[in-house]
Structures are given as C-alpha cells and as structure tokens.
Design a protein around this nucleic acid. Structure first.
Length: 432
RNA sequence: GGUGAGGUUCCCGAGUGGCCAAAGGGAUCAGACUGUAAAUCUGACGCGUAAGCUUCGGUGGUUCGAAUCCACCCCUCACCA
C-alpha cells in the first residue's frame, strides 16, 4: 500500500482530532504499534454506533498494527459523563458483568486473533482496577489530575455550567479511570495509541498525559467523527429502535434494510466510513450513479458490504433472499421451501392459531405479532387499504373478519399468509 | 443541614379548578408523489374495532369536579454551609 494509514483515514473523513499529527505519522511508520479502543457495556449488545471504532481497529490491524479491544468492566460500572446531558442510573454489577461477556464475543468477531505478532487481544479494565486501594488511587493517580483542568473539559462543561444540570463525583471520576486504562495498557502491553469517538477526546488526552507523567512515555490519541445524517435525525435508530450488531436483536435482514434505506445525501460518506472499499472505488460508484439516472447503486453496495462484515456471507445471502422476495412484487415465484426459508432467514414471523383469534380484530392480531406498536397504527393502515394479505388488500371492513382473511383456502401452500403493512413491513404467519 | 427551582403523555415543552387525553415542536407510523431516497402535502400518534377505560413523581385530602388547591412522602437540580 503506497498510501499511509493516516492518509487513508483522512481521505475517508475518519479523523476528527489527533494528538500531534506529524509525530503520530512518524510513530506509525516506524513499525507495528499497539493501540486500543474501549467499549463500555451499557447494554447486552453493541449497536452500530460502535461500528466505526470497531472497523477502525480492523483498519489498523490491516496495516500491521496490533489492536486491543478493551471492554469496560470497570468503567461500565461508573458511566461516562462525556456530553451526556444528565447523570445516569447505575447498573448493578452482575448485569454489567453479563454484558461484558457478550461484548467480548462481539468485538472479537471483527479483528483477527490469529495473524502472528499483531494478533488482537481483548482486555477488561476491571482486571486492573478492581483491586486498586482507594488511598493508592488518590495518592498515585489522583495526584496527577488537576480539577481545574478537568472541569474545563468541554465534555463535562454543560454539566457544570448549565442551570439545572449537575455531575456526581462518581461520573466525574470516569475520566481518571479511563486515563488509568491507557497508562496501564502502556505499561503492560506497550500500547501507545488510543482511538475512540470524538466525544472521547477529553478522556483520551487525560490518558496521554497520565501516561507521560507516570510512565514517562509519549503516547497518542486519535478520535473518529460523530456519524451524522444530513436530515439531522440521529444515526442508528429506526422505527423499530436501535440497530444492534447482535443477529438475535437485529436480524441480518433488518440490518440490510437499514443500510439500503440510507439517504442519498449520506450514502457516499457512509461507504467511506463503513466499508473497506477504497476511496477511489467509492468515488467511481458516485460518478456512475450520477451519470445513470434513477436509482443509485450506492445503497445496495453499502448494504451488502456492511451486512457481510457483520453477519457474514450467509447472513447477507439470507437478507438478500428475503429482500428479493418481498420487494420484487412477485411473491408468486416463491416455492413452499422458500417460505419456510424466509422465516429462518429472519423475516419476522409467527404462528397463527385461527381458532384462538377468530374473534379478535385484525388490529389486535397484527399489533400483537409485532407489525405495529399499537392497534391504532394498524387501524390507520386498514383505513387506507394498506394491509395486504397474500396479495389481497384489506380495509376496515375486514377488521372483524379474521376468519375470512386468514381462511385456510386462502393460505399459500395450505399454511402461509404473507402480510404486508404499508410498503415496508412484512410478516409471515404460519397456520397452526 | 439551610435556601431556592423543579418532577406533564417517546423527547423537548405549554398548561395553575371545569371547554384537558392535555397546546406547540421534534421523533415515529400510514397515505399521495417517488427510487424500499430526499423534499412536500395529508392523516395518525395513552389503551381500545367500538362503547368506553386509564394518565400528568407517590399517597392521602378539599371539591359536584383536580395535571391544576392542601398535607405528607419520594426524587432531581442550583446556591449556601
């Protein structure tokens, strides 16, 4: 590769801030660097908000550097106050410990543990913090921090300056804990670089300073940009909630659909952030899309690349199979086996016991199946004839007619009902 | 410990005795238009097919009637000590 890693990252727009660019560039060129990025357990799975840092670790590894994925068994117990408007509730330690185990597995999927000298490692900061004595902490670590500097950090400013906000000592200490992580990893693993989201800048620089003071070593920090959408809404959320990396929480199909629905204004930027396609390849795609009128290819490429990264070839194949079937408009081409496969591939599905629900209105049946959060929305769709069962549109008239709608003679292959609510929500009912 | 400000439906935020299931904005959902896009327009947005039912930190109370008044409690925040 003629281009350096930093040049590539910058071309992708993946660098928000870094400590002394020239020195970091030089440091990275001098051989394999050990770097780390922390992931705090705040839920039982990572979501796509963590994707950029994870992929960046992988990018570093591809350039021969050694990534450490740090799972915040300790910091997760405290809660990062950075740019958070208010104090957060503490999670109890057994919960956090359970999440730590899940996150370990997830982060492991991205980086290689079997590539020689720069094989990745997963570390847990609970290992080096849980037995630190409070007096040791205050005298050996705390002494290096100036409260004046800490309160001046942009990341906690709004909590300190703003009326109606506040910050507990617990959360205020978070920065010290994270700084300590960097110092410890520098001592134990020779780690010299920390990466993280741009909200982590304050915590990262805290770590570089602590390492310099305690270990006498110069270490570096680099932050990644916050992913924004052109329409100003929050990235990574949809009507059905957060997009998780765990296939059990967000199916490969739903994941694929999420990316497919990326706005034009964002898609080329996202290709640079979330795929390993080279910048020039991405520019070519953009050019081709511009020349060809109509639907751009970029969304499809983005969805394929990301789904493959997270869920593998199989997950991608499943996602595409469902997408083909549902959006081609031609479900008649599907065989009986195809229907059985759809449910397995992650198309939302459920078993319908017509005897049990014969008296229920469709609003109840469909909302309980998870097609809509409440009956009201099903009702709204019914009033607009936007509920399609095996190709037949239904309106309010059929609301109390579950028996007729789901009559055995209408079932495909004697047992399948493919229900479509609106343009994008599909659900497969199987006759009991 | 003292003083002050607060806790409203997913979020922000109006509402200070009946006209309040509760303004407005955001987010979200559906329809039209489209490219499973954006923008725009329309409708929905506590629960319920409906009749109706349950909400405004909690518990009691005043009242024909309370998100609104009173008492106590819980929680958050700010300032002071």
């Amino acid at each position: 590769m003629s281009e350096t890693l930093l040049q590539d990252l910058k071309a992708r727009g993946l660098v928000a801030q870094m400590t002394s660019e020239e020195e970091l560039e030089k440091h990275l060129s001098e051989g394999s660097v050990t770097l780390y990025c922390g992931f705090d357990p705040t839920a039982d799975s990572l979501h796509i908000g963590s994707l950029v840092p994870l992929l960046t670790l992988k990018r570093f590894q591809e350039y021969g550097h050694k990534p450490l994925a740090l799972v915040g068994g300790a910091t997760g117990l405290i809660g990062d106050p950075s740019f958070k408007a208010q104090e957060r509730k503490l999670n109890d330690d057994s919960t956090v410990a359970g999440w730590v185990e899940k996150l370990k597995k997830q982060v492991s999927a991205f980086i290689s543990f079997d590539c020689g000298d720069n094989s990745a490692e997963v570390v847990n900061n609970l290992d080096w913090t849980q037995n630190v004595n409070i007096l040791t902490f205050l005298r050996d670590i705390g002494k290096h921090f100036s409260v004046n500097q800490m309160i001046a950090k942009e990341s906690v400013k709004q909590r300190i300056d703003r009326e109606g906000a506040g910050i507990s000592y617990t959360e205020f200490t978070y920065m010290i804990l994270q700084s300590y992580d960097f110092q410890q990893l520098n001592a134990s693993h020779g780690c010299t670089l920390q990466i993280g989201g741009s909200d982590q800048w304050g915590n990262i620089t805290g770590g570089t300073e602590l390492t310099r003071r305690m270990n006498g070593n110069q270490v570096f920090g680099l932050t990644l940009p916050l992913i924004t959408k052109s329409d100003g809404t929050k990235f990574g959320k949809t009507e059905s909630g957060t997009i998780w990396l765990d296939a059990a929480k967000t199916s490969p199909y739903a994941f694929y659909q999420f990316w497919l629905q990326t706005a034009d204004a964002d898609v080329y930027r996202f290709l640079k952030y979330f795929t390993f396609l080279s910048v020039s390849e991405i520019e070519q795609i953009e050019k081709d899309d511009a020349e060809r009128q109509g639907r751009p290819e970029a969304q499809r490429v983005l969805a394929e690349e990301t789904t493959r990264l997270i869920h593998g070839e199989e997950g991608l194949a499943a996602a595409k199979r469902i997408t083909e079937a549902l959006f081609s408009g031609d479900t008649s081409s599907l065989s009986e086996q195809d229907y059985a496969q759809l449910a397995q591939d992650g198309l939302p599905s459920s078993v319908l016991d017509l005897d049990a629900v014969a008296d229920s209105p469709l609003t109840t049946i469909l909302s309980e199946a998870g097609m809509a959060p409440g009956g009201k929305q099903v009702k709204d769709a019914l009033q607009r004839n936007a509920v399609i069962v095996n190709g037949n549109a239904h309106g309010m008239d059929d609301n109390m007619n579950a028996t007729g709608v789901f009559a055995a003679e209408n079932a495909l292959f004697g047992k399948y009902f493919l229900v479509k609510l609106g343009k994008k929500k599909h659900h497969l009912f199987t006759n009991a």
